[in-house]
């Protein structure tokens, strides 16, 4: 699939369509996830921090947790649940109804026509949706900070701004890019190799969502581990 990324022809229309389907289609999920995750996280930590008289640090903790960990992981999990299932089901159904063979018989490479536009769309849209998720979650944290934890809004945003440094932002963008590869590879692979008709497509779809969710969590751990070693001075 990687080689096909750089091979002609380029399917711009399909890529644009997929970007719309993935981006706009997943936006409401990401917004809901971001707002409630941010609020829940802020609520739990504001209580803990209050015990130490450190409620002013809520913005710092929220930024580190959301931008580096929760935002990328939650957004990727939501996109995996929605998009990976769709990709696997669509390609699997095309396989079981001979449409992939029909593409081949017309001299079209199904990887190039189906997988590459989805990969490109994910590479663009997962980071964009993650940024949305981060912003919404931090805003959710702000609501809790101001109205429940009684932290001043200025203080909260000053703390957020203080932690929006290169290291955190780099990790926050690197993760969704890596996750987009994970989702695209697993979803397309499961679709192309699904067998056993409609039942097989259903099984492949479930496996695709489960596997991509687990791999996202595993990869997230290793990126965090490596980042804490390589970006020590920037965090």
């Amino acid at each position: 699939m990687i080689i096909a990324l750089f091979r002609r022809p380029f399917y711009f229309a399909e890529t644009k369509e997929q970007m719309y389907l993935i981006g706009i289609g997943s936006l409401y999920l990401v917004i809901l996830t971001g707002i409630f995750a941010g609020q829940g996280f802020a609520l739990a930590f504001s209580n803990e921090l209050a015990d130490f008289g450190a409620k002013d640090y809520l913005g710092r903790i929220m930024t580190i947790a959301i931008v580096r960990e929760l935002g990328p992981v939650l957004a990727a999990l939501m996109i995996a649940a929605r998009v990976a299932a769709g990709i696997t089901a669509e390609i699997g159904a095309m396989k079981s109804s001979n449409q992939l063979n029909a593409l081949l018989s017309f001299g079209i490479d199904p990887i190039q026509k189906l997988a590459v536009p989805r990969l490109l769309a994910l590479i663009v849209m997962v980071p964009v949706l993650t940024i949305f998720c981060d912003v919404i979650a931090l805003f959710g944290g702000y609501i809790i900070a101001v109205f429940l934890a009684h932290v001043s809004g200025t203080m909260y945003f000053a703390a957020v701004k203080e932690r929006l440094i290169f290291g955190n932002l780099f990790i926050g963008i690197l993760k969704p890019i890596v996750f987009s590869f994970v989702i695209a590879f697993i979803a397309c692979y499961k679709g192309f190799y699904s067998e056993g008709g409609t039942k097989g497509v259903g099984k492949a779809t479930t496996e695709s969502v489960v596997l991509s969710s687990i791999i996202i969590l595993v990869v997230n751990f290793f990126i965090t581990k490596m980042a804490s070693s390589f970006l020590k001075g920037y965090l």
């Binding site: 159904a93 109804s97 001979n98 063979n101 029909a102 081949l104 018989s105 001299g107 079209i108 490479d109």
Partner: peptide, 23 residues
């Protein structure tokens, strides 16, 4: 090679079982 196969396939029309139209 796959690219050359694609050229050969262009010379052959194939009607699959059930049509295999792009739905």
């Amino acid at each position: 090679k796959e690219k050359e196969k694609q050229e050969i396939r262009k010379k052959i029309g194939m009607v699959f079982q059930d049509g295999a139209l792009f739905d």
